[in-house]
């Protein structure tokens, strides 16, 4: 048993207690079968999710729930740097949002998301004041690369896909520092499924090789070059390629719809993190808790949205993600 493993004993015990506050499948079923949005919000209020009913409050509570989970991890983790990979994707999103505002000459950036490693306002100021020296390396490099592309090409979509690919590569780099195979396998799963989503969309819209080279991140389970080659040959060839890969099981989901595939990817992550429920040592239960919270937020968001457009319970059930607890 390594010192690193035992360093998380206290944090894991606190996570076990906090797992009690995650919504159970019975809670989600109660939300699904609530007679309307108001009744669903009342259920969430009973569970301590929101203080008052109303559309504005539920949006705030999604944000608060995500931030509270992150704050808990920051409070209990013996080495907070090891958990940076969980939110680094939000930093890249914030860079994207700030760059777009900068290019459009809109001083106020509206779509920042939290939690993040760097306070969003610092990213905004660094981009608008062209003073990036105080930013961490990953953010500085990402801004410089994307800024140059934006200035040269004025192609916002290219900048977006470059940042998305850089975010996944950065996430993998940070995850490798944890030296936990649970974490690195999880990030590999996220990166590989993200690549598959991009490849499928690219095959359908007939994107070229340069787009794929810029958009796809590096993964171990699926060769990037082989994926590019299969995508360039068309959708059917890509599906055949995927069916022969580690992710062969998802071809069926791919054929159903993009939403079904998205759900399959999320459920795959929950399935992977489930093993952490039985671990008492190491970083894994903390990581699993964060992903469980994200999945829970996504499910609640889906249920509330479906309730607002009055979808039947059966249709909502098909869209709701697997849960961790």
């Amino acid at each position: 048993m390594s010192m690193k493993e035992t360093a998380y004993i206290n944090a894991v015990a606190r996570i076990r207690f906090n797992e009690l506050s995650l919504l159970s499948s019975a809670d989600l079923e109660q939300l699904i079968t609530a007679k309307d949005t108001k009744a669903a919000l009342a259920v969430l209020r009973d569970k301590g999710w929101i203080d008052h009913e109303g559309r504005q409050d539920i949006d705030d509570s999604f944000k608060q729930q995500a931030e509270a989970a992150w704050e808990l991890l920051m409070e209990i983790a013996p080495d907070t740097d090891e958990l940076r990979f969980l939110v680094v994707g939000n930093d890249f999103h914030n860079i994207k949002a700030a760059l777009k505002s900068f290019v459009a000459q809109e001083p106020e950036v509206r779509s920042f998301i939290t939690p993040s490693i760097i306070p969003p306002q610092e990213i905004r100021d660094a981009i608008f004041n062209k003073d990036r020296k105080d930013l961490p390396d990953f953010a500085r490099n990402a801004i410089e690369k994307t800024y140059n592309v934006l200035v040269r090409t004025r192609d916002g979509q290219l900048a977006d896909i470059m940042l998305d690919a850089m975010a996944l590569d950065c996430m993998a780099e940070f995850a490798a520092r944890t030296r936990s195979s649970f974490v690195t396998d999880l990030v590999e799963l996220i990166s590989a499924t993200a690549n598959l989503k991009i490849a499928l969309r690219a095959a359908r819209t007939g994107k070229g090789e340069q787009f794929l080279t810029d958009a796809l991140c590096n993964t171990k389970t699926i060769s990037r070059n082989e994926l590019i080659a299969a995508t360039l040959k068309g959708e059917e060839e890509l599906k055949a390629f995927i069916s022969n890969s580690t992710y062969g099981g998802e071809v069926e989901q791919l054929q159903k719809s993009a939403a079904a595939f998205e759900k399959w990817c999320d459920d795959l992550i929950i399935s992977h993190i489930s093993s952490a429920k039985y671990k008492s040592f190491g970083i894994d239960p903390l990581v699993a808790y964060f992903f469980a919270k994200q999945a829970e937020i996504k499910s609640v968001r889906i249920i509330i949205s479906c309730k607002q457009i009055k979808l039947p319970a059966e249709a909502i059930r098909e869209r709701v993600r697997e849960i961790y607890v």
Binding site: I9, N10, V12, A13, R14, R16, F17
Partner: peptide, 14 residues
């Protein structure tokens, strides 16, 4: 010591 650390984690919450 190990159990004490875990126990302190639970007691911090409850």
């Amino acid at each position: 010591g190990m159990v004490g650390e875990a126990a302190a984690g639970v007691l911090a919450e409850d």
